[in-house]
Design a protein around this nucleic acid. Structure first.
Lengths: 230, 230
DNA sequence: CTTATAAGTGTGGCATATACACCAGTAAAA
DNA sequence: TTTTACTGGTGTATATGCCACACTTATAAG
């Protein structure tokens, strides 16, 4: 049975825009590109593209991110859909926004450079086209919330990281200083990190121990009702 | 200058579905309708419709809710966009989901009945069409979070309510018992309610004091950095 | 060659404030 | 008398802000 009950309804262009967060050990950053087509050619923009007919939004987000940066296997989460009628002066477009988390250090930066993409600290990013500025703000809000309730912070760090790096990361996400001792105690009490024998010697004479996120342990604890909270 | 840089991109049908939460003083409920067109005619469904070309999603949500229930001036929030390719067997459709909060008691139920809509306790709702069950679950998750961080609970209560009603509301949202004394202390410490002289005599011999949400006071406190938290 | 220094790392402790579970009694009015 | 509202308090655990110090080792100074 062929059904066409919706045939009289309007169809619209559906875009997907990605706020790509990265962490360089010091600051939380976002990846922006110089837009190379009208409207707003030459201005800073989020990475985006259009949903294809037979595609899930998550797939579209992955495809677009990969196509423009070469990155794959990245944590992404959809967080809001923007639909102001005149948000894109070119044509009426609704945009579903995703944020992505990547560890800047351990990714090759070649493909990113190819597309005239550039990292900016979130606190000093240039003006963006359309409503992309709003999108970024909302992405930060979501990131703050998520980082407090799910162990997604590790997506922004190398597989091995020091306590100090972890703390600095949270400080830049939350945009506030945290107490060193209390932070360590809290993280340790979660009991989801593996303390390695190795030390990172780049930051001090003494060197600081490296840690790894123990995903198996975390998953097991979640099964038993554990709730990440930081 | 006319621009048509997006002309080769696919367009899609964009639906808006609403999870309508209500509270009857005892249980958290959702409003469902019997679908009167194919596919899935006759089965329980969320209230929904399609976005029109020149319309903001928020407007579409308001229009759809009003059209099918007669309700207006309702708290609504968009929370997620669902896009599985085969989620609607009729035609490829992406759906932006909103939840709405209404006070069942103080709304006329006439227009609702006209559309064969019916309230169900969230804990014993019938199976729903498509992915609407998932939508409801996700709406509940969002409601739980929001009710803990914003004073939206009052949208589900009459303008004047008792402490016990407020507590019962939170208990049904969170699906867990709360300690009476601690709850009252916490709410009082927020200092955003007006205690009236009036009493509600329907629930007991003694009668319980009625309260009102003091929106002005709340807004003023927010200005000064206050954060609702319960 | 030996020793001192600098710069981070890692651990201890404490006072205060909040959160939370639990128990019990008084007041009002039909 | 009965029913429900409302108030009190307390002990415990946890969270949070703050202060201090010992440890390690590359590097520089003597």
């Amino acid at each position: 049975m062929k059904l066409s009950s919706y045939s009289t309804e309007d169809k619209v262009l559906l875009a997907v825009d990605c706020i790509i967060f990265g962490f360089d050990g010091k600051n939380l950053k976002i990846l922006l590109i110089k837009r190379n087509f009208e409207p707003e050619m030459g201005n800073w923009s989020l990475i985006g593209g259009f949903l294809k007919k037979e595609e899930h939004l998550d797939q579209a987000a992955i495809r677009i991110l990969n196509h423009l940066t070469g990155l794959d296997n990245i944590f992404m989460e959809q967080f809001y859909t923007f639909s102001k009628v005149d948000r894109d002066p070119g044509e009426r477009t609704i945009s579903v926004a995703y944020y992505a988390l990547i560890d800047i250090a351990s990714r090759s930066s070649k493909p990113i450079q190819l597309n005239s993409a550039k990292w900016f600290p979130v606190k000093s990013a240039p003006p963006l086209i359309f409503d992309h500025g709003r999108m970024v703000q909302r992405a930060i809000d979501r990131l703050r919330y998520r980082a407090g309730t799910k162990p997604i912070g590790f997506e922004l760090l190398p597989p091995k990281f020091t306590m100090r790096q972890l703390q600095t990361l949270y400080e830049s996400i939350l945009d506030q200083k945290l107490d060193k001792r209390n932070f360590i105690n809290k993280v340790n009490s979660l009991d989801i990190l593996i303390k390695l024998e190795e030390k990172d010697m780049t930051s001090s004479r003494k060197g600081s121990y490296l840690y790894q996120f123990d995903k198996e342990k975390y998953d097991a604890k979640v099964q038993n009702g554990f709730n990440f909270k930081i």
